[in-house]
Amino acid sequence: MEAHADTVKRLCVLYLKNHADTEDIFQTVFLKYTLSSTAFESAEHERAWFIRVTINACKDLLRSFFRRRTVPLEQAAVQAVREEDGAVLEAVLALPEAYRTAIYLHYYEQYTAPEIARLLGKNTNTVYTLLTRGRERLRRALEGNGDGA
Protein backbone atom coordinates (compact mmCIF):
# COMPACT_ATOMS: atom_id res chain seq x y z
CA MET A 1 0.00 0.00 0.00
CA GLU A 2 2.85 2.39 0.85
CA ALA A 3 4.17 2.25 -2.71
CA HIS A 4 0.97 3.44 -4.36
CA ALA A 5 -1.07 5.18 -1.66
CA ASP A 6 0.16 8.68 -2.55
CA THR A 7 -0.39 8.14 -6.28
CA VAL A 8 -3.96 6.97 -5.71
CA LYS A 9 -4.62 9.89 -3.35
CA ARG A 10 -3.26 12.43 -5.85
CA LEU A 11 -5.42 11.06 -8.65
CA CYS A 12 -8.46 11.16 -6.35
CA VAL A 13 -7.74 14.80 -5.51
CA LEU A 14 -7.19 15.53 -9.19
CA TYR A 15 -10.63 14.18 -10.11
CA LEU A 16 -12.87 14.45 -7.10
CA LYS A 17 -11.89 17.41 -4.92
CA ASN A 18 -14.10 15.93 -2.25
CA HIS A 19 -12.83 14.28 0.92
CA ALA A 20 -15.56 11.66 1.35
CA ASP A 21 -15.42 10.58 -2.28
CA THR A 22 -11.63 10.52 -2.17
CA GLU A 23 -11.73 8.21 0.82
CA ASP A 24 -14.28 5.94 -0.88
CA ILE A 25 -12.34 5.65 -4.11
CA PHE A 26 -9.05 5.20 -2.25
CA GLN A 27 -10.47 2.24 -0.36
CA THR A 28 -12.23 0.87 -3.44
CA VAL A 29 -9.00 0.84 -5.44
CA PHE A 30 -7.08 -1.06 -2.78
CA LEU A 31 -9.96 -3.50 -2.33
CA LYS A 32 -9.91 -4.14 -6.07
CA TYR A 33 -6.16 -4.63 -5.86
CA THR A 34 -6.58 -7.20 -3.07
CA LEU A 35 -9.29 -9.09 -4.89
CA SER A 36 -7.66 -8.80 -8.30
CA SER A 37 -6.12 -11.86 -9.88
CA THR A 38 -3.94 -9.80 -12.21
CA ALA A 39 -0.39 -11.10 -12.44
CA PHE A 40 1.85 -8.02 -12.58
CA GLU A 41 4.90 -8.35 -14.75
CA SER A 42 6.80 -5.52 -13.08
CA ALA A 43 6.52 -2.65 -10.61
CA GLU A 44 5.84 -0.35 -13.55
CA HIS A 45 2.95 -2.58 -14.69
CA GLU A 46 1.54 -2.47 -11.19
CA ARG A 47 1.80 1.33 -11.01
CA ALA A 48 0.02 1.66 -14.37
CA TRP A 49 -2.72 -0.66 -13.07
CA PHE A 50 -3.25 1.57 -10.02
CA ILE A 51 -3.40 4.69 -12.17
CA ARG A 52 -5.83 3.22 -14.67
CA VAL A 53 -8.11 1.70 -12.04
CA THR A 54 -8.16 4.89 -9.97
CA ILE A 55 -9.00 7.08 -12.96
CA ASN A 56 -11.76 4.68 -14.04
CA ALA A 57 -13.20 4.51 -10.51
CA CYS A 58 -13.20 8.31 -10.25
CA LYS A 59 -14.88 8.69 -13.64
CA ASP A 60 -17.49 6.06 -12.72
CA LEU A 61 -18.26 7.92 -9.52
CA LEU A 62 -18.54 11.26 -11.32
CA ARG A 63 -20.87 9.69 -13.85
CA SER A 64 -23.11 8.09 -11.25
CA PHE A 65 -26.63 9.45 -11.22
CA PHE A 66 -26.90 9.13 -7.46
CA ARG A 67 -23.81 11.24 -6.82
CA ARG A 68 -24.81 13.93 -9.31
CA ARG A 69 -28.11 14.33 -7.50
CA THR A 70 -26.91 14.22 -3.89
CA VAL A 71 -23.31 15.30 -3.35
CA PRO A 72 -22.80 18.95 -2.50
CA LEU A 73 -19.85 20.84 -3.88
CA GLU A 74 -17.59 20.23 -0.96
CA GLN A 75 -14.05 21.42 -1.43
CA ALA A 76 -12.52 20.17 1.82
CA ALA A 77 -9.81 18.03 0.26
CA VAL A 78 -8.74 20.73 -2.14
CA GLN A 79 -8.67 23.39 0.52
CA ALA A 80 -6.52 21.25 2.77
CA VAL A 81 -4.05 20.94 -0.07
CA ARG A 82 -4.27 24.57 -1.11
CA GLU A 83 -3.31 25.84 2.29
CA GLU A 84 -0.09 23.87 2.14
CA ASP A 85 0.84 24.36 -1.44
CA GLY A 86 -0.65 27.40 -3.01
CA ALA A 87 -1.07 28.68 -6.48
CA VAL A 88 0.45 25.97 -8.69
CA LEU A 89 -1.67 23.13 -7.40
CA GLU A 90 -4.74 25.32 -7.42
CA ALA A 91 -4.05 26.27 -11.02
CA VAL A 92 -3.60 22.62 -12.10
CA LEU A 93 -6.78 21.55 -10.34
CA ALA A 94 -8.65 24.39 -11.99
CA LEU A 95 -7.81 23.06 -15.47
CA PRO A 96 -10.43 21.00 -17.34
CA GLU A 97 -10.24 17.30 -16.47
CA ALA A 98 -8.48 16.12 -19.65
CA TYR A 99 -5.76 18.81 -19.33
CA ARG A 100 -5.04 18.30 -15.65
CA THR A 101 -4.82 14.50 -16.02
CA ALA A 102 -2.37 14.80 -18.91
CA ILE A 103 -0.32 17.46 -17.07
CA TYR A 104 -0.19 15.37 -13.89
CA LEU A 105 0.75 12.13 -15.62
CA HIS A 106 3.41 13.82 -17.72
CA TYR A 107 5.06 16.14 -15.20
CA TYR A 108 4.62 14.25 -11.98
CA GLU A 109 4.43 10.60 -12.98
CA GLN A 110 6.92 11.14 -15.81
CA TYR A 111 4.91 9.36 -18.48
CA THR A 112 5.54 10.18 -22.14
CA ALA A 113 2.70 11.22 -24.43
CA PRO A 114 2.41 7.74 -26.08
CA GLU A 115 2.33 6.13 -22.61
CA ILE A 116 -0.37 8.54 -21.46
CA ALA A 117 -2.31 7.80 -24.63
CA ARG A 118 -2.19 4.08 -23.83
CA LEU A 119 -3.19 4.65 -20.20
CA LEU A 120 -6.13 6.87 -21.04
CA GLY A 121 -7.14 5.14 -24.26
CA LYS A 122 -6.59 8.29 -26.28
CA ASN A 123 -4.77 9.17 -29.48
CA THR A 124 -1.11 10.18 -28.95
CA ASN A 125 -1.57 13.40 -30.91
CA THR A 126 -4.55 14.25 -28.73
CA VAL A 127 -2.31 13.87 -25.68
CA TYR A 128 0.33 16.17 -27.23
CA THR A 129 -2.41 18.72 -27.84
CA LEU A 130 -3.71 18.37 -24.28
CA LEU A 131 -0.20 18.87 -22.88
CA THR A 132 0.48 21.93 -25.04
CA ARG A 133 -2.84 23.60 -24.30
CA GLY A 134 -2.70 22.61 -20.62
CA ARG A 135 0.73 24.21 -20.29
CA GLU A 136 -0.51 27.40 -21.97
CA ARG A 137 -3.55 27.61 -19.73
CA LEU A 138 -1.44 26.88 -16.67
CA ARG A 139 1.09 29.56 -17.63
CA ARG A 140 -1.65 32.10 -18.18
CA ALA A 141 -3.28 31.24 -14.89
CA LEU A 142 -0.03 31.47 -12.95
CA GLU A 143 0.91 34.73 -14.68
CA GLY A 144 -2.51 36.08 -13.83
CA ASN A 145 -1.99 35.11 -10.20
CA GLY A 146 1.41 36.78 -10.20
CA ASP A 147 -0.08 39.98 -11.61
CA GLY A 148 -2.77 40.01 -9.02
CA ALA A 149 -0.37 39.49 -6.10
Binding site: A5, D6, K9, R10, V13, V81, E84, D85, G86, V88, L89, V92, I103, Y104, Y107, Y108, R135, L138, R139, L142
Partner: peptide, 13 residues
Amino acid sequence: MEHEIVRAFQTVR
Protein backbone atom coordinates in the same frame (compact mmCIF):
# COMPACT_ATOMS: atom_id res chain seq x y z
CA MET B 1 7.15 24.92 -14.48
CA GLU B 2 7.89 21.19 -14.25
CA HIS B 3 9.56 21.51 -10.85
CA GLU B 4 6.76 23.67 -9.53
CA ILE B 5 4.16 21.09 -10.58
CA VAL B 6 6.13 18.24 -9.01
CA ARG B 7 6.58 20.20 -5.77
CA ALA B 8 2.89 21.08 -5.70
CA PHE B 9 1.79 17.46 -6.08
CA GLN B 10 4.36 16.22 -3.59
CA THR B 11 2.40 18.01 -0.91
CA VAL B 12 -0.60 15.76 -1.62
CA ARG B 13 -0.11 12.59 0.39
